[in-house]
Design a protein around this nucleic acid. Structure first.
Lengths: 334, 334
DNA sequence: TGCGGGTGTTTTAACGTTCAAAACCCCGGT
DNA sequence: ACCGGGGTTTTGAACGTTAAAACACCCGCA
């Protein structure tokens, strides 16, 4: 494996000159640059990242804790990781994966990775209500950025990127309205979920704006399963409220709605419009296709990396992105 | 951030002694060790991994290329990544993610990561028939191990870990047999898929062993979608072959089967037994639950890491693990 | 002719660690 | 008193890179 020294010897210049050829080529005379580059090429030289990091004390690695998947099935995690990776690479960085216990118990792991200089900073996701990780990291001045807001805090402890769930479900409501629906229900999670309340709020606001009823039309599911989604849908249909549209807080719940509708011989799309959230791979693969709100993963990842690697000046960066309604058969005009 | 030097000064020993306290404590007199450890603790010292790697030229990082998800929905990728991470950490290593073009076009990326000493080696997955990556890496003596065999090669170009698909689907067949099924069909992929043929072979062998018919009972789906699975199931049911069991090559195809059965008013489990493959999160979340073959992710990950980080002696290690049949409602006795 | 000011290149030192070898210490045996 | 030797600690050098200072050279100008 060639080193700077060998390249320098071959090109008959000093080591530093070769280093400059790579990091500050404008400093070299064109002919020297040319000669050095030829030697680099010829010897197939690749800078040793460890030596570089040791000297500059920047490892260009970003830590991401791969979650434990206790309750939620996170169907878009692969999309997220791919986007995050790609975004990191666009800035010459990479993603380092690790595992850690949830909540505050995992923080020593974060600290350790940072202290031993395995990573420069962290991207957090799976943010939970009152998530303690943000405050902990901020206190210790460990660089991080969060995908997802810390709900129920007066002040966000650090920079974040998030998707506007309220506007998203409002868009879903308006879309169903445009396809002729007038009694649009909401399938959600327990009130303790900040993310859930955000999306529920959008549904309610849009309904009120359009003069649609909301009373008795919001149902909460304990778990994010097809089963619970189906049960909630059954309750709605049995309530006699003539529901003709369902905005679900997740694709999984929406699948439950589709199943229950099918079971009762009502055709999703034609009889009842249904929308999901996240545009997981499933949305495309079921039939009829599930109308869903796509999270703009590439933008999210780009913003995360930009914020994390940008100048760490004063005010923490905050970025709210809009989801995109992907229309499929489940919301076809009735 | 404390360094060896500072710890040494504090403990009034040489730098090397502190290093030894960490890497070869048996060389120190107990009282010295004690004193050094106290200083380490007090100064909250953490060894700098970059300096260490520079000296020892081992980075303890393993590269994993996060796939592009063109066609297949890889629902168990998160499980795999979590297991891989955990296994790596058990040996003091970590996983570094990166993206690369598919096939041979991506190889320069692998080479680069290795040459610049960002990783020690690679874990490959998503192995395809005639996958060129294995040969390429082997030729250049870049350490790697593959999750998945390279199908259709006389000789496997390098170490691998894989799950025994043949035995897996045979187990599914036997299970359906035990629950009273006698006409068991197979939902598969095109013949070009090595993995598909492996699983199909197991189904055929088990049926023959049990004296069950197979003619006309294997159906191939172009794509791994619920839609295609449903269509294939429809064809089977229309063929007049009195199918009472379906072994599907993937959970997605199995979901298609469940849907088609429901559509025709036939209850999965009671009327027709259905099994899937991979035990993806969906299997648990649908109703009735989908009987499926769980890949032993923790074992797989452990073997991958063991092989990759073990002694690189002569014969390439090969390891075939058994999937586990997870029984749920979709195969309840009729 | 000598001097200031670029421009391009080299020298020196350092980043934090580990390896190899040398030095030191203490003890028992001659 | 001297030597040998095992256990413990220190010394010196090296891993491959970059920042900063030093140097050499050329040019224009007084």
């Amino acid at each position: 494996m060639a080193t700077l020294k060998q390249v320098a010897a071959h090109a008959e210049v000093s080591v530093q000159t070769v280093s400059n050829a790579l990091n500050a080529p404008h400093r070299l005379r064109p002919d020297t640059l040319e000669r050095v580059n030829r030697s680099i090429e010829l010897l197939n030289y690749r800078p040793n990242r460890n030596a570089r990091s040791l000297r500059t004390s920047a490892v260009e690695l970003i830590g991401y804790c791969v979650p434990d998947w206790p309750n939620q099935t996170h169907l878009v995690m692969d999309q997220f990781l791919h986007a995050l990776c790609a975004a990191a690479e666009r800035t010459g960085r990479h993603i380092l994966l690790f595992t850690a216990p949830g909540g505050v118990d995992g923080m020593p792991t974060y600290d350790d990775l940072h202290a031993r200089r395995l990573v420069d900073g962290f991207v957090l996701s799976q943010t939970e209500t009152h998530d303690p990780r943000h405050g902990w990291l901020k206190e210790r001045k460990i660089p991080f950025v969060s995908f997802g807001r810390v709900w129920k805090e007066s002040e966000q402890p650090g920079p974040w990127v998030d998707v506007d769930g309220a506007t998203g479900s409002a868009a879903a409501v308006r879309h169903l309205y445009e396809t002729g629906r007038r009694r649009i229900a909401f399938l959600g999670w327990p009130k303790s979920s900040g993310l859930g309340e955000d999306r529920a709020g959008g549904w309610r606001a849009a309904c009120q704006e359009l003069g649609l009823p909301t009373t008795g039309l919001a149902v909460r599911c304990r778990q994010d399963t097809i089963e619970d989604g189906a049960r909630a849908t059954a309750r709605l249909l049995d309530s006699g409220r003539e529901v003709d549209g369902i905005v679900a807080l997740s694709d999984i719940l929406a699948l439950g709605a589709l199943r229950e509708l099918n079971r009762r011989g009502r055709t999703p799309g034609r009889d009842v419009g249904v929308t999901g959230f996240d545009d997981s791979p499933l949305a495309e693969v079921v039939s009829p296709g599930l109308t869903s709100l796509r999270q703009p993963m590439d933008e999210i990842a780009d913003e995360l990396i930009t914020i994390l690697t940008g100048p760490a000046d004063g005010a923490p960066a905050e970025c709210l992105l809009q989801p995109e309604l992907v229309i499929r058969g489940s919301s076809a005009p009735g």
